[in-house]
Structures are given as structure tokens and as C-alpha cells.
Amino acid sequence: MQELINIFVKSIFIDNMIFAYFLGMCSYLAVSKTVKTGMGLGLAVTFVLTITVPVNYLLQTKILDKGALQWLDPSFVEVDLSFLSFIMFIAVIAAMVQLVEMIVEKFAPALYSALGIFLPLIAVNCSILGGSLFMQERAYATIGQATAFGFGSGIGWLLAVLAIAAIRERLKYSHVPPALRGLGITFIITGLMGIAFMSFMGIKL
């Protein structure tokens, strides 16, 4: 249990998707104009990451890895399908996003109207595919660890987008040099926040 909490905290603060790896920057810049839209996309990303990372973990360990197909037939011990992982992962993500969209629409219409246009966009958000690829690279031992990592990364993304959206709302009242207005100043603030987040790196978990 303690291990799961460690992975969870680590993926929120130390390996933060935005401040440490810059994943999902495009949508991060696009939706962070107000806290409300930031919250909507943040929740949707957390939701989809928590589902797709474990599903792709099963795909990786039961089908794609070298020798993973042994449960089907012992003669498959040499089969290595890992070169297919990109296309399989992206297919799972696109399908899961569609499925999640349909389920949310049916059972939680309020949530659906809040997330609205953001759900379909998530299929092409790099942080989702990035989550699955990091899961593959770090080779987590159990599906529990993979889920903790996916959930933690999503929460980390949500925190980052909320923080920058709140700052940008206040920024409207300050005097920024014209050429830096909008995109430029957001980059600089994200950089400074990234430096602040680096102070978490000293924590050993």
C-alpha cells in the first residue's frame, strides 16, 4: 500500500507531466485562460488517464511483451510484438475516449455538459499517450502501481492547469510588455513554476 502512495505522490509532484516533461502543453496553453475551462479539461484528463494506463498495462504485459503470449500457447515464447505498441496504445486510447464519452453522456449528463467539447480532444492530448509510454518504459510491476501512476499523473496535470489558469486570470490586470502578452508571458510563468516544482526533486520516496 505504501508503495502505491509513493508512486502516486511521486507522479503528482516530482514527475509532474507538465513541469517535468511538458506533456499536454498544447491543450494546457489553450484552456488555461479561465479556471472553469481548466478544471473541465483537467478532470477529463485525470479520468481518461486513470482508465487508459491500466488497460494499456494489461495489453503490454499480456500481449505485446516478449513472451507475453505464453498464456495462449507455450510455443509463443519467442514472439515479441512490442514494435506494435504505438498503434495499439493509440487505438485503445481513441476507443476508450469514445466509450467514456458515451458512458458519461448516458449516466452523468451534468458531468457531460461540463466536460462537453473537451472529451473528444483528449484522444490527441500528448499527456495521455505519454502516460502509457512512460508506463511501458518504467515497467511497473503490478496493475495497481500502473493505476496509481495514471491517477497521480492526471491529478498532477489538473493541479498545473488550475494553477496557471488562476495566475492568468490575475494577469489580465497587470501591465505586460506588448510583445510578451498572451503566449510569451505564459511560457515564462510556466518556466518559473517548473523551477519551483524542481524543489520537490530532492524528496526521496
Binding site: P177, P178, A179, L183, I188, G191, L192, G194, M198
Partner: peptide, 28 residues
């Protein structure tokens, strides 16, 4: 070499480019 500096270098490029080409400056 730290990751956040990449953002700041890109921001400087944006700053330079927009000062050269004022038509790109964002309106509020």
C-alpha cells in the same frame, strides 16, 4: 540544462519575433 529553461528560451524567441513583427501581438 534544466527543463524549465527551455520554456524561457522559447519565450525569448517569441518576444523577439513579436517585437520584429508587431502584427502578431495578441489583443486582449
Amino acid at each position: 540544462l534544466l527543463p524549465p529553461m527551455a520554456l524561457i528560451v522559447v519565450a525569448l524567441i517569441i518576444w523577439w519575433q513579436r517585437s520584429k513583427t508587431p502584427s502578431l501581438i495578441e489583443k486582449d
